[in-house]
Nucleic acid binder design. Structure first.
Length: 349
DNA sequence: AATCCGGGGCC
DNA sequence: GGCCCAGGATT
């Protein structure tokens, strides 16, 4: 059936919503719907799979139950509750957003106004406004891009997701059900997540397969076509400096850095620390298209280390208790845990 | 328009 | 090992 015809668009909307009602996952921000819970869930789910965000969401709600509690919280505690989720600017933006809403005494009511708040872009603004204010605006995320590219059998090669969204957004907007704005948007994303998956799309079980040109062409799994940049390789030196059961950590202070406020093993070249010591481990992490190998050298603190640490306020000594409290980047917490036994073995106790 | 930002899941 | 995920901010 041609989706260009109005009568078929109405059929599409009904088939999608009927399906959604039967498979809709009882996610915690759906079963108890408040603006605050929606905002938190949307920020947490940006570039993050639902199942990964779920335990963070529950913890977050226990600790920061509403905009007021979040606005008044200690920023390090906020960051600590985001530890391991990545994209840490989301946590800072979420607190700034809460502070703005508390200061204003109310929250925005339109997508346009929501988008003025930190951390809220076109996608998130549309999601909140369609769910809570019945605004007829389509969300365009990775799921929706994939669904629309397949529905229309769009075989163009897009430079990136932004470019694809610009081209396919109007399709999503034309499909939007103006009487069920929130449910329709959620249904489109649910379809992409559960059926119209990137790999192994479940076309045989798809509620809107009759409307899908790619399915009739038999190439749904190949769409959309997105160009990708090649990965680059980098290496970074780290030092694991111990003194009396404490480890030296570096607080990332750079205001522009998205890692601002997080703690990591120090980068000696940045801090005037020596890079001496035996290599304890080489670990890898991926950030975007970068593949970074981090060489971690271990040593007992010498007098020069103590002097540098004393003079540089971004360096802190953390004992076991402090280590638990500080917000660390996910990989560094994991690596410190992983190698602490080996590091202890190097101590001449 | 291009680049940067994290970490995990999946094939 | 490459790709993607309920993207946004910055340059």
């Amino acid at each position: 059936m041609q989706l260009s015809q109005p009568a078929n668009i109405l059929r599409f909307r009904k088939a999608l919503l009927d399906w959604f009602e039967t498979v809709r996952r009882p996610l915690p921000w759906r079963t108890e719907r408040t603006v605050y819970r929606t905002v938190v869930s949307e920020l947490m789910c940006q570039q993050t799979q639902i199942d990964t965000a779920l335990p963070y969401f529950e913890r977050w709600m226990r600790r920061f139950p509403g905009f007021e509690a979040l606005a008044a919280a200690d920023p390090d505690t906020v960051l600590k509750h985001w530890e391991g989720l990545g994209y840490y600017s989301r946590a800072r933006n979420l607190q700034r957003l809460a502070q703005a809403i508390v200061a204003e005494g109310d929250h925005p009511k339109s997508a346009k106004d929501w988008q003025k708040l930190p951390g809220i872009g076109p996608y998130t603004a549309a999601a909140i406004a369609s769910i809570h204010h019945a605004e007829p605006i389509a969300v365009v995320d990775g799921n929706v891009i994939r669904v629309c590219a397949r529905l229309t059998a769009d075989e163009r090669s897009f430079k990136n997701g932004t470019e694809a969204g610009k081209q396919l957004g109007p399709i999503a907007q034309s499909l939007l059900n103006p009487e069920q704005t929130g449910a329709h948007n959620e249904a489109m994303m649910e379809l992409g997540a559960l059926v119209c998956r990137k790999a192994n799309p479940g076309c045989l079980l798809c509620p809107v397969r009759d409307f899908c040109e790619a399915e009739s062409n038999g190439n749904a799994a190949e769409l959309p076509r997105l160009q990708r940049a090649k990965a680059t390789e980098e290496s970074v030196e780290r030092v694991w400096v111990e003194a009396e059961g404490s480890i030296l950590l570096q607080r990332i202070a750079a205001k522009g850095s998205q890692l601002q406020g997080l703690y990591e093993l120090p980068m000696p070249r940045e801090l005037g620390l020596s890079a001496k010591g035996k290599i304890l481990a080489k670990e890898k992490r991926g950030i975007g298209n970068r593949r970074i190998t981090e060489s971690i050298r271990y040593r007992q603190a010498d007098s020069a280390d103590l002097k540098v640490a004393e003079a540089d306020s971004s360096l802190v000594w953390a004992d076991a208790e402090k280590l638990k409290q500080l917000p660390l980047s996910g990989p560094h917490r994991k690596w410190i845990q992983k190698h602490s036994a080996a590091a202890a073995g190097l101590n001449p106790k």
